[in-house]
Amino acid sequence: MLLLRDLHKWYGDFHALRGVSFSASRGQVVGLLGPNGAGKTTSIRIITGVFPPTSGTVEVANTPVLTRPEEARRHIGYLPESAPLYPEMSVEGYLHYRARLFGFARGEARALIGRALEIGSLDAVRRKRISTLSKGFRQRVGLAAAALHRPGLLVLDEPANGLDPTQIKQMRETIRALASESCVLLSSHILGEVELTCDRVVIIASGTLLADGTPAELRARHAPESAVWVEVAEHEATAALIAIRSASGILGAESVKAENGFRLLRARTRPPAATGEDPLTAAARSLHDVGIVPRTFAPDAPSLERVFHSLLEASAVRTKDAAA
């Protein structure tokens, strides 16, 4: 559905995108991650046809965005950051305008608007002026308008920006529902949200693609260490530490804090190998062998945030080395 090949973008002397390539298919929610100035918005604007790349190609539904822009745009639904809308229009009026702009006749437009109102749960405010709506509702109007014409590719730039936790959850559910018939490309700063919403993550920094894969793949590839939290009785802490350290796949263990007669331990583990015993099972078995029953035993998988920071740090080191 979406194919980017070797995208470069120069703004004067500034090389904003340096050969970014990736693809995405229908049914996937792909998260586009990167720090400020990484090239996320530039990539999104090139994909949606706001402006062209300096070199490279973009195809949406096998249609080149550069050479057949009007046709390609029919397959794209775009929600820019902060959901710009016409405040003087009603919700229904705006959706009707968008449907007509995409070339739908009145009858078709009515059916699409009904579906879009459902997507955004906007039926209660359909006749209200956009200027009177809350931030959350405006964001939903923007999303409904982007998905109105049932695009093959839905591009959402920071869709959860400024929303409260309940609204973020609703937005996540809506995006997941939309992914059943579209490919969703989602740019966000909220890493936890990306982890919960996206099937795949593309990380870019300084205009370069750093990683591309499912959150689990990225964790395995770029955050080789996991951890497990173990809480044991205070008098068993030393024995527990020795037992855990002796288990296979355990890189180290240390005491973190004591509270109410219990001690919290943290053990760093290797990711489970294809063969051999799982480090968590090994640690649990070691404790069991010395007769210790932990109060809690909680695996702590590396978050996408840790992957993200580890990649950024590695990238910064590489940049520094190259400069030296």
Binding site: T48, V50, E71, R73, R74, I76, Y78, P80, R98, A146
Partner: peptide
């Protein structure tokens, strides 16, 4: 942006 990314 929504206007220029429409097919218009």
């Amino acid at each position: 942006e929504p206007l220029i990314t429409s097919p218009a």
